[in-house]
Design a protein around this nucleic acid. Sequence first.
RNA 1: GGCCCCGUAGUUUAAUGGAUAAAACGAAAGUUUCCGGAACUUUUGAUAGCAGUUCGAUUCUGCUCGGGGCUACCA
Length: 594
Amino acid sequence: MTLEQTLKQATVEIFNQQFNATISPEAVTINITNADHEGDYTIVVFPLVRVSKKSPEQTAELLGNALIEKTNVIAKFNVIKGFLNLTLTDSYWLQRLQNIAENASFGTFPANGQKVVLEYCGPNTNKPLHIGHLRNMLLGYSSSEILKAAGYDVTKVNIYNDRGIAICKSMVAYTRYANAATPQSTGIKGDHFMGDWYVKFNEIVTEEIKALPNAPTDKDEAQKLTPIFKEAQELLLKWEAGDPETVALWKKMNDWVYEGFHETFKLLGVDFQKDYYESETYKLGRDLVNEGLEKNVFFKRKDGAVAVDLTPEGLDEKVLLRADGTSIYITQDLATAKLRHEEFDMDKMIYVVANEQDYHFKVLKLALQKLGYKWADGIYHLSYALVESPTGRFKSREGKTADADDLIAEVLRIAEEKTKELGKIEGFTAEEASTLYRTIGLGALKYFVLRVNPYKKIIFNPEESIDFHGHTGPFIQYTNARIAAIMRKAGGAVTMSADVIAAYSLSEVERELIILMSEYENVVKAAAEKYDPSEIANYAYNLARTYNKFYHESPILSAPTENEKQVRVALSGETGVIIKKAMKLLGIDVPEKM
RNA sequence: GGCCCCGUAGUUUAAUGGAUAAAACGAAAGUUUCCGGAACUUUUGAUAGCAGUUCGAUUCUGCUCGGGGCUACCA
């Protein structure tokens, strides 16, 4: 039982005895005491006065005394208004620290038997990854790590939107102008190579529109009249018909893209246990929709399209199958969901997709629920806001500024520059140095993205780029490097003796640090429940900041007494351990020297 | 038009309905003896507006004003 549970339970029992009243443990709110007041934990008694029928102060006083009687961990308490501030004994905290240090799996929960399928990334294969994918991938990967720590069995999957008119556009431009160039022959990364031909296509469209006799003012309308667009449409038809030459070209170009993507995935450290391809699922779903017709939960409109009526749920009527019986996006998503359930028998299915598609996922979940699939209750859309430039939304037309690979390269370059400036890596081999630049640069980038709550939009200013001071990844990494240096000199982790645990008197910061570490497992749990890595990110920062404060206030290796040295080294070692654990949940490596 | 999300110091972010709203960046000043100065200590400054719910509201409700998104037999 955790301390909070113990205190809640004791409070419930005390109320039962003293007031003959039954309250639930959930009704007892316990917070960490505000920094401005003395105490470790605070029980807010306002909600309890209704039961005690005494003033908040009297109730708190009574409860405080009773808790001291009942438990053996409370040293003292004070009452301010309706707040009961409890101070635990130093030996409780030291013992707690020792227990944490001895428990290698502190912060990871035992398997809960629940399976999760988590879909993330979901790129189109006609252009390179951009900053939005970056946010998606970092969120997806980190969420998966957090869920695993919370005891879930997680399978990460990706879905490639590898077909359609956009891909055909690149193919047409390539066929017309490339002269059989390849990523290898040009030295261009495969996904960028594909993207370049997509850009080329659009350039030609613009030219051909100019040549049009009576071009419509609407750009989309005008595009449809251009020869190159018509070629792309023909190509799409040929692809759908399975024309061998077209399919071969399509496959060749997509393989280039995958090679490029995989390079980026590897650099970022994200991975997938299974890949899905739209080209294999785009026709699925028809049977499922017909099943809905039979069950009378979907209906056929007069025009022949099959739709679901979601007006009772506050949404609209939504078409699920075209009048000609072919699938649309939602149709295949329904089918893919069912397919995955058959494959994985998961309890939860999480989709990491931008908030533009909030509506889509509401429909998806409701439609599956109407079909009677119980597992649809476990569908969760991990929705995140778009990344915007200071001037508004990143458009692909704005080009380079939003490109994921460029952004990564830039941040690695800055990491190298700053590290060299500081000159702390003497004795590093060239390879060690470049690994370090990567660790720090990616640490900065990942932290920058993950520290923000997913539903909040991120304003990203490429000019100002990413910082390495203050509330950043490198700051946390640096703190660990500093701790690592101390631990090397101390000769490794220490175990505190029973005498020290019993008699040591903690300073304010030391106490603060232990309380923070003690909270780590609650933070992991909360982050998993909320699907929110920013909880972990902010926690890690807090821990690092508190440690630095401690570090500056308290001599560690040169502490005045052996007891102080023992406690402070133990404190340092475990802080390092938890920093590493937390950062791992964010997908961020932590160097021992930097 | 309808629906959804967001609005906190100059800027970027925090705060299960709890105490005097917390940090970082920026700006200004400082850290002789010290284990790593990517650090630490000061100073500076904010809940868009108006009501309501209650012991208590950044948080919940309603309205107003701003910003974004969705509302395709596109993906």
